[in-house]
Simulated scan of single mutants.
Amino acid sequence: MHSLTFLGTSAGVPTRTRNVSALALQTQNSKAWTLFDCGEGTQHQILKSHLSAYHLSRIFITHLHGDHVYGLFGLLASKGMQRSPAPLEIYGPRGLKEMVRTVMRLSQLHLPFELHITEIGPGDRLQLEGFTLDVIPLSHSVTSYGFILAFDDTPGHLDTEKAKAAGIPEGPLYGRLKRGETVTLPDGRRFEGKDFLTPPTPGKRLALGGDNDEPMRFAPFAPFDLMVHEATYTQEDFDRLPRKFKHTTARQLGLAAQKMGLSKLILTHISPRYDTDGRILELLREVERVFDGEVEIAYDFMKIKF
């Protein structure tokens, strides 16, 4: 199974219980993993998790605000100290390449592995190992992106009972059937592997949002099996702010998810004002009043499998 691990779920600044934004994706049967955003202190969060920076192969940055990117430079330096030989890919908005290269030059950071930085834009599609990723432009005070992850279908399993009933002897032939190959028995009978496989399991579709005050930007790509999106404030608190920041409220997100027909939401990027007993539930209740699906509030080191 694939898994998501929340390494940082706070908005803007860390708290005693939440670090700033970082989310890890690990695909099944692979040690390599992908990181979405890398706020300050992310490498410390990795040390406290089941993950290893040594096997980190790819990083996506949603936007260049510090709580989403300031941890990148320390993580690169530490990964270099581990003498990790595999190339590292980093993707993000325009300006990311200049930011990383400038810090590396001024701090004389020399890495033992190849570093590939790609600046992405709206409409870009990447075909990666096990899934396709689409880049979605969001609405924020700086260029910010969300991502649609569409995972490959999982092949069906070999129906061994059906194979036995057909008189196919157990052993290497079963492996060939599982790979969908044609098998010929000594008596001349031929069997197609696809006829002995259960139907494939459709791959999941995930929506991962960067900072964004218009969650309906994801609507053209809906539905999703899961949406992970910021819910920085309650609507009441947001309305009282003397200065409005371009973030989504819990109510906005719930209404958008209901319109998109989603079944599950995970709220993240939580304002530190809710990092007290009881207040965090205000966000949950606000979403539940307008959204019929399942909703959870992410916390640091929360892990979900799919």
Rank of each mutant, 00 (worst) to 15 (best):
M1A: 13
L4V: 15
F6S: 00
T9H: 01
T15Y: 06
R16L: 14
R16N: 12
N19M: 04
V20L: 05
A22N: 01
A22S: 09
T27L: 08
F36C: 01
D37L: 02
D37G: 01
Q45W: 06
I46K: 04
H50P: 10
I59D: 01
F60V: 06
F60P: 03
L72R: 00
G74I: 04
L75W: 02
L75H: 03
L76M: 11
A77F: 04
A86K: 14
A86E: 15
P87Q: 09
E89P: 04
I90M: 10
Y91I: 06
L96M: 08
L109R: 04
H116K: 11
F131M: 13
S139R: 05
S141I: 13
I148D: 01
D152N: 12
D153H: 12
D153V: 08
P155C: 03
G156A: 09
G156E: 03
H157I: 09
T160P: 07
A163C: 13
A166Y: 04
G167A: 09
P169K: 14
E170R: 15
Y174M: 11
R179D: 14
G180P: 02
G188E: 13
G193F: 05
D195S: 15
L197N: 08
L197Y: 06
T198M: 05
P199C: 10
P199E: 08
N212T: 14
N212I: 09
P215A: 03
R217Y: 11
P220F: 09
P220S: 15
F221Y: 15
F221C: 04
L226R: 06
E230Q: 12
T232M: 08
E236N: 10
L241F: 09
T248A: 12
Q252W: 04
G254R: 00
Q258F: 10
M260V: 09
M260P: 05
L265Y: 04
L267S: 08
T268S: 07
T276P: 05
I280S: 06
L284E: 10
E288W: 07
F291T: 01
I304K: 05
